[in-house]
């Protein structure tokens, strides 16, 4: 659906030039929710703004829906942009227009007839649950309501892609969740491809199918959210994952407190339906080992349940080795930590 090829964006000239994106390649499939996560200044905002050419890359190509945007005339680009919806961190609604007129805005840009505008806007107002607020001005709405207007406006021209530029970063946690739910609902209902950038792992974990981690203008890690989230490779990714998981005391402390003598702190990862099975207790009953849980999370990534336990096994060498082997056999991911 979206194909970025050797995308480079440089600001400034000569010695003072800074490179926001350096030869970045990315491929986003139709119908998926793709997340890009990175710290501020990593280039994620530049990246998403290149996808509809709000920001023109210095070099490289941007393909959306089989069309190379970088090669289009101004007029053709305007037409292609109507197929790419976008929502923003600060909503960017017309303050002088009502909710109704804001949602109607893209339809009027495309010179749609009055009846068609009316029908479409009513449908969208219902979709985002703002029927009662149609004649209000943005200043009279809460942040979450404003973003709902933003979403309705972005969907008005029936886009193939929805770009979300830090769409929930200005919202409180509860409102964030309700907006994420709405995005997920839209994705499933219309099979709409959604690209979102964020600095919150929570957003990625809640609704994304795949994720890319951006750092210093390049993608350092990319893959299914379950893989990246449960087995992060790059230090930046590990940072984000740890930030999301460690509520309470840091892992290092827990491992230390469990005694330096016993080396066997083990990270066990459950995925899918296995999360809720009694695999661990069955296994130790068979092998005779004991265990203490040092840290643990049971949660979901999008709709997939997962569990991640850090445990210390006690018992004889063979007992512990046998336990680890049996856990692996049953499809759990076992990693001995040092």
């Amino acid at each position: 659906m979206i194909e970025l090829k050797q995308l480079t964006k440089r600001y400034g000239q000569g010695a003072k030039a800074t490179e926001a994106l350096s030869g970045l390649n990315l491929s986003i499939h139709k119908g998926e929710i793709f997340g890009v996560i990175g710290h501020s200044g990593a280039g994620k905002s530049t990246l998403i703004r290149c996808m509809n050419l709000l920001e023109r890359p210095t070099s490289g190509e941007v393909w959306v829906g089989g069309v190379n945007l970088t090669g289009l005339s101004k007029q053709r680009l305007q037409n292609e942009r109507r197929k790419i919806g976008m929502i923003f961190q600060h909503f960017n609604l017309l303050s002088s227009a009502t909710v109704y007129d804001n949602i109607a805005f893209p339809l009027r840009l495309a010179r749609k007839g009055k009846a068609e505008v009316e029908a479409k806007v009513n449908e969208l107002l219902a979709l985002v649950g703002l029927e009662a607020h149609r004649n209000k001005y943005p200043a009279q709405l809460s942040g979450g309501q404003k973003q709902r207007v933003g979403i309705a406006r972005a969907l008005a021209s029936d886009p193939q892609v929805l770009l979300c530029d830090e769409a929930t970063s200005a919202l409180d946690p509860q409102t964030t969740d309700s907006i994420l739910k709405l995005l997920l609902d839209i994705n499933q209902r219309f099979n709409l491809t959604i690209v979102l950038i964020t600095h919150e792992m929570h957003v990625i974990q809640s609704i994304c199918d795949r994720v890319a981690v951006i750092h210093q203008g390049g993608i350092v890690e990319e893959g299914a959210v379950t893989d990246v989230f449960l087995k992060p490779q790059h230090p930046v990714t590990k940072d984000f994952v740890r930030g999301e998981q460690s509520q309470g005391e840091p892992l290092e402390l827990a491992v230390q407190a469990s005694g330096t003598g016993s080396p066997q702190a083990v990270k066990i990862t459950f995925l899918g339906s296995k999360t809720y099975e009694s695999i661990l207790s069955r296994t130790v009953r068979e092998t005779g080992a004991d265990f203490a849980i040092l840290q643990g999370t049971i949660s979901t990534i999008k709709d997939t349940p997962y569990g991640q336990l850090i445990v210390r096994f006690e018992g004889g060498r063979e007992q512990i080795d046998a336990t680890l082997a049996k856990l692996s056999e049953q499809g759990l991911d076992v990693e001995v930590m040092n």
């Binding site: 942009r81 109507r82 009027r108």
Partner: peptide
């Protein structure tokens, strides 16, 4: 006029003329 609103209009495929007549002038009224 908020730059973000102008940008949003561009992202929706507004022409320069449309940005002037439908965004800048009403917002700056």
């Amino acid at each position: 006029v908020d730059r973000g609103v102008i940008e949003a209009a561009h992202s929706m495929g507004a022409s320069t003329w449309q940005v002037i007549t439908r965004v800048l002038l009403p917002e700056a009224r």
